[in-house]
């Protein structure tokens, strides 16, 4: 016998909600999913979009349903990964037509002079995710500034946030641990556009099912450069936890939201990068250091902690041989 929807008690339930254990039919699920996103964002409108089809779809729908009065735009980053991003950008372009939203694509190549393909050629597969992550964060800000938007919405979902809480514990990164559950970042300074995560409380399972049931056009291929191995551990752990107790994802976020840091623990002081003006807790921002490393042929410059060298970079001085030898690409 089919299970009936716990909300309308009329139609057949189509999914079991991981957060609460309720069973919903398609229509009630759509309604609940959308309304929950609405509840999450009602106090702060946003604009812009990433590669997340569901985010774009729901934002557009809610903007019309509730007259947010938002001017939505799609912002996409082209990392320059042949066979991956070029395909997914096709999806974004189709989304643009479907949703009739303006689209801006910023590429690593135009911003930094390097594509991910070229970076991987120099640094290998070990640390490429660090480059990609750092560059993407800044690329989004730069794109947002070009578009003159007030906010960036990213498609981070509950699973992503929970995974980040776990990651930050595993790395002992207390500063990020404190920040990562925030739904919206405050404006951190010049050149940084506040971000928010409207899907922060939406389970990946529900997002995927939403896209599936709504027949949304979405792209799903893993990045060809193998993803960050350490994050992979956290991700598998989270999925295993979820199979034991489905609410665990939201439980972890609750935990993260209720942590606080002991007084007297040193937190990094945010300043600005002396080269590009982007926010940074060091003399040079991570992105400039990584770029400098790439341009000097010393890709490990931004991987470890080499704060001592920042002044040399700023003064455009050469490194000593000893310094250089540590930063050379690994032979592979």
């Amino acid at each position: 016998m089919p299970v009936l929807c716990s909300r309308c008690a009329e139609r057949r339930a189509m999914l079991k909600r991981p957060k609460t254990g309720h069973s919903l039919c398609k229509e009630c699920f759509f309604w609940a999913f959308e309304e929950e996103v609405h509840q999450t964002i009602r106090w702060g409108p946003a604009s812009g979009g990433k590669d997340s089809t569901v985010l774009a779809h729901v934002m557009k729908l809610l903007n019309e349903r509730y007259s947010y009065g938002l001017e939505l735009m799609l912002l996409s980053v082209d990392e320059g990964i042949t066979g991956y991003r070029d395909d997914s950008l096709e999806t974004v372009k189709r989304n643009q037509q479907q949703y009739e939203l303006p689209l801006k694509v910023v590429s690593y190549e135009e911003l930094y002079g390097w594509t991910m393909d070229a970076i991987v050629k120099q640094v290998g597969l070990k640390n490429n995710c660090t480059f990609c992550g750092v560059f993407r964060r800044q690329a989004l800000d730069r794109g947002a500034i070009m578009l003159k938007v007030d906010k960036i919405c990213t498609g981070h979902n509950a699973d992503d946030v929970a995974e980040t809480v776990l990651m930050n514990i595993l790395r002992g990164d207390i500063a990020r641990l404190r920040r990562c559950t925030a739904i919206s970042t405050a404006s951190e300074g010049e050149g940084v556009v506040p971000r928010c995560k409207p899907l922060k409380y939406a389970y990946e399972k529900e997002i995927v099912l939403y896209a599936y049931f709504k027949r949304l056009d979405y792209f799903s291929t893993e990045c060809i450069y193998s993803p960050n191995a350490y994050r992979g551990y956290a991700r598998n752990f989270l999925k295993d936890l979820e199979s034991i107790r489905p609410s665990v994802i939201i439980d972890i976020i609750h935990s993260g939201e209720n942590l606080s840091v002991r007084e007297g623990v040193k937190m990094p002081v945010q300043g600005t990068c002396s080269r590009c003006g982007y926010i940074s807790s060091q003399a040079l921002c991570k992105s400039c250091v990584l770029l400098e490393g790439l341009n000097r042929g010393l890709p490990k410059l931004g991987i470890g902690k080499h704060h001592r060298l920042h002044n040399k970079i700023l003064a455009q001085q050469p490194f000593t041989e000893k310094e250089e030898s540590k930063l050379k690409p690994v032979e592979f």
Binding site: A13, M14, G155, D159, K205, L209, F219, S220, K239
Partner: peptide, 27 residues
């Protein structure tokens, strides 16, 4: 959702449609 149908114990019927969707990457 197969969680509503008994997961592994569900008895297949002729012409059933079974979909497996990975959520493990891409967003």
């Amino acid at each position: 959702d197969w969680e509503l149908l008994g997961e592994l114990d569900y008895q297949l019927q002729d012409k059933d449609n079974i979909v497996f969707i990975s959520t493990l990457h891409g967003g």
